[in-house]
Structure formats: C-alpha cells, structure tokens
Simulated assay, not measured.
Amino acid sequence: MTTPARVAVQIQPQHADYAQIRRAVAAAEEAGVDVVYNWDHFFPLSGEPDGKHFECWTMLGAWAEATSRVEIGALVTCNSYRNPELLADMARTVDHISDGRLILGIGAGWFERDYNEYGYEFGTAGSRLNELSEALPRITSRWEKLNPKPTRDIPILIGGGGEKKTLRYTAEYASIWHGFGDAETLAHKRDVLDRWCGEIGRDPAEIERSAGVSGSPDEVAEGMVAAGITQFTVGVSGPDYDLAEVRDWIDWRDDHNKQLTAS
C-alpha cells in the first residue's frame, strides 16, 4: 500500500445524552482522527433496545458547526429513509456548513425495526438494492441543479459487500468503499470491486478502501493493509465513548505513514 492510511471513528449515537456525544466528537478531533462518522438508525443496535438514541442527519448538521478539521458523515445513510432529491439537498447543505468536509455514506438499509416503527416498506434485500441503484444517479443529478452547488465533488461512500449489485454500484458512483469482514474476506471483495471497475473502465485506485477494525493494530493492521484497506474505522458506543483504541490506531497511522514517506 502506497496510499497514506487514515483513521476514522464511528461515534455511535446510542445510550448517551447529546452533550456526551458532542464531547466525544471534540475529543476525537483533538486526538487527530481523519473522519468522524455516526450511523443512520432510529434505535440502538446493541445494549438496551429502547435505550437513548438520536437521529443521524440533524446531528451531522450540528457536527459541521462543532468541528473544524475532520471530515464527517454517516456510516451509512439508509437510502430508504429519505427521498433521493431531499437527501442530495441535505448533503449539499451540510457540505456548505462544514466548508466541504462531508462524506455521503449510503447503503441499501437492513435494520427491520427502523422500517416497521417509522412506516417504511421493508421489502426485500433485492428491492432495497434496486432502490439504491435508482437513487444514486438522482442524487448526483440533483447536486448539479442546486444553487449553490456543493463546495466540492462530495465523496460518496457505499457500504456493503454484495458482489453482483453493491460492488457494481460502488465502481460506478463511489469514492470510498466500506467493507466488512476479516482480511481474507476484504481481499476477495477488493478483487471483485476491481473487476467491476475494469468492466466500466474506471481506475480502481480512485476508490479508497475502508473497513471497521477492532483490537490492537499490532495484531490486525498488517493483514488489513495487505487486503488494500487504507481507512480504518473504530466504533465506540455511549455513554463513555472510550477512545483508547482509537488513539492506538492514530499512533499506528502516524508511524505507518512516516514509513511510507521515508520509502
């Protein structure tokens, strides 16, 4: 890997008051992370199912004002929850509020409770992926029509590993791919994504490769790097938002990038 590594943290908006979330975001930026994500759900994904939880995009607007350096985004927005043109406008607005630091993370959606309790049609995995494929060109088209336009080509992050659809959409639209699994799985998905890029005539190097990490970088970083991952995301949950593991990854990133520069 010759691309510098980046470290992200997912501040999971669950089991905490907003003041605790805001402090965690500030601490992560101060520690030196490159990206701060939340997620797009309406209920906790772990712990007490009916515990405290906050909405994604209103929070991103607040983070845009509360931070000054880090990129921000959702890991990931559920395509089902908002009209694509509305989502495009929301993203454009947060892009401007943040002075060009928004990443539009998006996926097809999967958490059935969100759908049932908020009145969205759950459908099937296939139907949700088809809706995502219809939404992506509508989002990019709307950006061209808005006044003012986004401050930059907003990076689109697509999360998922489906080889027939998700990775094809990633090759067509994304600047960042976020995968799941161990190093061996990620390496396989990387190769599939590269093949889709070849089919549409896109340089695979244009797509940053991202994955969630857990544990010491001394134990897992080497395999992830070999799989092509350059963005490493640590998830932390409320109410404590312990950033100790995040700081370990920041130290590893700094050493790794120094070695790249030296070589």
Rank of each mutant, 00 (worst) to 15 (best):
W143Y: 05
N130R: 14
N147R: 05
V234Q: 09
G123E: 04
E144M: 03
G51L: 02
R23N: 09
M90D: 08
D254T: 11
D240E: 13
G159H: 04
N38E: 05
A64Q: 12
L167S: 11
A174Y: 02
R152T: 07
Y173E: 03
F180G: 02
I156P: 01
A211D: 04
G123L: 01
D242V: 14
K149V: 11
L260P: 12
A135Y: 01
V25S: 04
V76D: 10
D242M: 15
D95P: 10
D242K: 14
G32F: 05
Y118I: 10
S237E: 11
L260F: 14
C197A: 10
Q12C: 10
L104W: 01
K52E: 13
G126V: 02
G123Y: 03
T77Y: 06
H178N: 15
P155H: 02
A31N: 04
G119P: 02
D114C: 12
I21Q: 15
V213M: 04
D255H: 02
W177G: 00
T233L: 11
E30V: 03
E30H: 14
A108M: 12
G235P: 01
E85T: 06
D50L: 11
I250K: 09
W143N: 03
L45F: 06
N116K: 13
G201L: 06
T93G: 15
I200H: 01
G215S: 02
D17E: 09
F232Y: 15
D99C: 09
P44L: 11
D248V: 03
I21N: 12
A27G: 00
C56Q: 02
L102Q: 11
A5N: 05
S210H: 05
G162A: 06
R253K: 15
N79V: 13
S237F: 15
G73L: 01
E134C: 14
E219S: 15
G160F: 03
L146N: 03
D194L: 00
V94H: 12
L129N: 04
V25W: 08
A28K: 02
F122M: 09
G223K: 03
A24D: 10
D50I: 00
K165W: 07
E222P: 01
